[in-house]
Design a protein around this nucleic acid. Structure first.
Length: 259
DNA sequence: ATTACTACCTGACAGC
DNA sequence: TGCTGTCAGGTAGTAA
């Protein structure tokens, strides 16, 4: 479910609740979420203080006494503060004050213990136009898969890539390296504007997403092309098209977005 | 150095 | 009702 704006919204909702709390115990209800080794991870986490809740791209990073707990929500992961456990609860943190549960229908979400930040490209919100343009110039393939590549730039996912390319008037199959300087500058500006607007709206809730306190997002109301195949383009009225690029549903306006 | 494809899991939904 | 196929906010791994 979550891309950068959703993960940032979760981070902001949890930071004041978790900072300074001690982990009394961690119970894993599915092995997979702990990378197949629940016992070593649970004992590793036990007793440590959560000093802060950070984020890099789509990764939540709990800064503990002796390292980082890297939480990736993948498609359906959700952190729930002081809520009820259910059939999809995969982990429960008992803190000195409060409970934090991890629910995840599809079980793609994963917790990893780290001594250093995960190896990813720069966070999408921590980029400048020149760096961004330089990264894309080196890519010979289509612009959409380049933007989805977390080792190039971290945080963008399927929704925000489609929305950014639409706003910038760039076809998702356009070759990244062939984009002119002004078009790259426009793309950068669109990415930044959309990510900031989405965070301000609490992210996009398509079906399930909610932050740590159960708040849903409402940026989905601002989607111009994502999930709107067949509807008229809000700018020119042409029918929004859905195609598949690198196995991902891709939504765009065939008239407004040029190669 | 990319790209293409599969796999991981479960549920929602459309069509028959 | 129930079956089948398609799709889903993500990424790792393996093969071309």
């Amino acid at each position: 479910m979550p891309e950068l704006p959703e993960v940032e919204t979760v981070r902001r909702s949890l930071e004041p609740l978790l900072a300074g709390r001690r982990i009394v115990s961690v119970r894993f209800l599915a092995r997979r979420v702990a990378g197949g080794k629940p016992d070593p991870l649970a004992s590793r986490l036990k007793g440590q203080i959560i000093h802060s809740v950070g984020r890099l791209g789509k990764h939540l990073l709990f800064e503990l006494d002796h390292g980082l707990l890297d939480i990736h929500l993948r498609m359906t992961g959700k952190l729930v503060w002081n809520g009820m456990t259910g059939p999809y609860t995969r982990a429960v943190f008992e803190l000195d004050k409060g409970l934090l549960a991890f629910d995840d229908v599809r079980q793609f979400g994963i917790f990893v213990w780290r001594q250093a930040q995960p190896r990813l490209g720069p966070d999408a919100l921590d980029l400048d136009a020149v760096t961004f343009s330089g990264l894309l110039r080196k890519r010979r393939g289509a612009v959409k898969p380049a933007l989805l590549d977390q080792s190039l730039c971290a945080g963008l996912g399927n929704i925000y890539v489609d929305e950014s390319l639409f706003e910038a008037g760039i076809h998702p199959r356009a070759r990244a390296s062939a984009l002119s300087k002004p078009r790259l500058a426009k793309l950068f500006a669109s990415v930044q504007r959309i990510l900031h607007a989405a965070i301000a709206a609490g992210g996009s809730t398509i079906s399930n997403y909610a932050d740590g306190t159960g708040q849903r997002g409402f940026f989905q109301q601002n989607h111009q092309v994502y999930g709107r195949q067949g509807e008229p383009c809000p700018v020119c009225g042409a029918a929004i098209r859905r195609i598949v690029i690198s196995q991902r549903g891709t939504h765009y306006c065939p008239r407004c977005q040029k190669r």
